[in-house]
């Protein structure tokens, strides 16, 4: 894949996001760095509560500030500096440069307006088109997401759509202004597998046809395996490993990635077997640990892990992980006296 020749559309560098709550500062995102290229699907996976949605929302500046704030870091969307952008600038960027689809489509569909009308309004907000032209565009996108009878359906209200259709209508709206980046935060969590498969096919088509870059946030590693080009694994507010989808599934290097993949129930798991899960709980982000965020649960934790945050080490081309085990001076498992850690 000639990823390097493709343009970088989103560049996130050392992003920190905190929430000021009465209990103190919740450090939800603690130094996230990644780039996204044209036509690429980057999946973000990781423990529930690790900061995936907050990261995505920050790219669109959707989290209310306060209580949220960005103490540190940069987000560049093409030429636009998101951290510095005013709300007014953001309004012109949202939809046109970056769009988001959510787990719950009703967070962006208005229940009191026909679906078609909402898409027309979104289009006219960003593109200089007459109402008739915008209408034609809206129907084109509804057809593209496989809404049958698009002309008739466009006149209906969101509650007259099934869950899967609403999801597709939201995707149509998100795409109607040709965004360069599409962020999908658990787009299929609420859908059954047949509709999920349709929506994933649709996203793959869109990516092929329009070169839109997609950030896909999901817990479903099957969806990741089928869709993603690259995967970023997050834990406690940081990306701990990034690589191609094959790197992450077959050549993973970070103990958290390894533990996550081991937790998958196998297709023929026996009911008497217990499912594997990672013992312990993630750190409280009010008081994040000094060292590695995963240290308290890591079976291979060493002294240094508790004291200092592991830097990023290169595992292979385009494959990096933040774990002290990858330090060139780190003793081998035998030298550390480890037996089988599993």
């Amino acid at each position: 894949m000639a990823k390097d020749t493709k343009k970088v559309v989103l560049d996130v560098n050392d992003l920190h996001v905190s929430f000021d709550t009465y209990a103190g500062e919740v450090k939800a995102v603690r130094g996230v760095t990644f780039t996204l290229h044209e036509g690429e699907v980057l999946a973000i996976v990781g423990e529930s509560g690790c900061g995936k949605s907050v990261t995505a929302q920050t790219v669109m500046k959707l989290n209310p500030m306060p209580p949220a704030r960005i103490p540190q870091g940069e987000v560049h969307l093409g030429e636009h500096d998101i951290v510095k952008a005013s709300e007014k600038e953001m309004q012109t960027l949202r939809g046109k440069e970056v769009s988001m689809i959510f787990q719950d489509p009703m967070t962006c569909l208005n229940p009191t307006k026909p679906v078609g009308k909402q898409i027309v309004e979104a289009i006219r907000h960003h593109r200089k088109l007459s109402t008739a032209e915008a209408k034609a565009e809206a129907i084109k996108y509804l057809k593209m997401v496989n809404i049958p009878n698009a002309e008739e359906r466009a006149k209906q209200y969101p509650h007259e759509f099934s869950g899967g259709m609403r999801q597709r209508a939201m995707i149509a709206m998100a795409l109607s202004c040709n965004p360069k980046v599409l962020i999908a935060d658990e787009p299929t969590t609420a859908l059954d597998v047949t509709i999920q498969a349709q929506i994933m096919d649709l996203l793959a088509e869109i990516k092929e046809e329009t070169d839109t870059a997609i950030i896909l946030i999901t817990h479903d590693l099957g969806v990741v395996a089928g869709m993603a080009d690259r995967v970023a694994v997050m834990y406690a507010g940081k990306i701990v490993e990034t690589g191609s989808v094959e790197d992450i599934f077959y050549r993973n290097a970070h103990p958290y990635t390894q533990a996550l993949l081991k937790s998958l129930p196998s297709v023929d798991a026996d009911k008497t077997e217990r499912l594997v899960s990672i013992a312990g709980t993630p750190p409280d982000l009010l008081n994040p640990p000094h060292g590695c965020g995963f240290a308290a649960r890591c079976k291979r934790c060493m002294k240094i892990c508790q004291e200092e945050q592991p830097p990023e080490f290169t595992v292979g081309e385009g494959h990096v992980a933040s774990c002290w085990l990858l330090h060139p001076d780190c003793p081998s498992p035998e030298e550390r006296g480890e037996k089988d850690v599993d």
């Binding site: 996976v45 423990e47 817990h219 499912l275 899960s277």
Partner: peptide, 14 residues
């Protein structure tokens, strides 16, 4: 469990 990561899914199922 659909909104949970696989490790916590396993934990809840267990």
């Amino acid at each position: 469990i659909s909104a949970l990561d696989v490790s916590i899914q396993s934990q809840v199922i267990n």
